[in-house]
Amino acid sequence: MSDSTEKTTTGEQLLQFVTFTLNNEEYAVDILNVQEINRIAEITPAPNAPDHVEGVINLRGKVIPVINLRKKFGLEDKKRDETSRIIIIEIQEITNGLIVDAVSEVLRIPSSLIEAAPPMSSDIHANYIKGIAKLDGRLIILLDMNQLAGDTTST
C-alpha cells in the first residue's frame, strides 16, 4: 500500500488508481495490481474455457489468460477497436489480462471521496465492487481485484 498512498495537505490518504471505461462507465483498479497496459495482441482462444475467458496471449514468453471484462460483467460484447486495451494485472501471484474498451488515466483519489458500494442490483456482480468514488461529478466504480482473481482461477 505504501507506494500508492500519499497524504494530502490535510493529512488525508490519497489512493492511486488506473481508470478505464467499459460500456461508457468509468472503472478503476488499484495501481499496485497493474503491471502494464498493452494494445490488443493476438489472442489464442482457450478450449473448453468459460465464456468470459477470451483466450491466452504471449506476454514476452509467458502465456497468460485474458478475460473479457464485458462478458464477465454480463455486458454486451463489443468489437475491438483502436482504443481497446489489455490491462495486465497481477493478483495473488497470478498474471491475468483484462480486455477493456479504453484506458483513461491514473487518478489520485482522496479516501474521503470513496464510498462503500450502495446495495444495488446492477448487471455487474456486486461482489466485484469495492466502492464508488465521486470526483468532480464523475462516478467511478472501484473494482475489487482479489474477488476477480479468485473467480478466474476457479471457473
Binding site: 493476438e42 489464442t44 482457450a46 478450449p47 473448453n48 474455457a49 475467458v53 491466452v56 496471449i57 504471449n58 514468453g61 509467458k62 502465456v63 497468460i64 489468460p65 497470478i94 498474471t95 491475468n96 478466474t152 482461477t153 476457479s154 471457473t155
Partner: peptide
C-alpha cells in the same frame, strides 16, 4: 512447454501451451 497459470485446465484437455517461432501461442 509453458505452464498455464490462471486457467483451470482440469477439464479442458489442455496440458500446457507453447510459443511458436512467429510468437503465437499454441495449446
Amino acid at each position: 512447454i509453458k505452464q498455464l497459470k490462471g486457467i483451470d485446465t482440469t477439464s479442458s484437455y489442455v496440458l500446457g501451451a507453447t510459443i511458436t517461432g512467429d510468437g503465437k501461442v499454441v495449446f
